[in-house]
Amino acid sequence: MRHLITATVNGRERELSVKSSQTLLDVLRDDLRLKGTHEGCSVGVCGSCTVLVDGKPVSSCLMLASNAEGRDVLTIESLARDGNLDPVQQAFLDRQAFQCGFCTPGMIMAVKGLLNENPKPDEAEVRDYLSGNICRCGTYVEVMAAIEDLTAKPQ
């Protein structure tokens, strides 16, 4: 069974025909070929599939695509504008807050979500919010430093 939905993906309104059993992640990767969103666990634990829906981070691997109807979906590909990185991406670069990079797009989107909800998080709030985004390579110290850079700067 298919569903015709309208959703805004990375700023562009799209009519999408999605299968009942497709997740948002499936649609992003397989249909829209937005491969920057990764699949690590498929069960909501790792966070490598994190995207923003109406500004809030979700595990796209567990969200039915049909529920994107009328929503605003942002993936990692939406961040850089005219060849300029988003401040969060830049802060990750400055702090070298990645190794293999597989968790990185999800981590960056989660940080976007965090700063949407709480522009000046303290360390405990950062840990609490991001603890569901798993980085096996070990970059938590640098991610925290990147966020510190971002929040220390006057906006």
Partner: peptide, 9 residues
């Protein structure tokens, strides 16, 4: 409960 992404869903 869980993590922020799951709590949103």
């Amino acid at each position: 409960v869980a993590n922020i992404r799951i709590r949103h869903l």
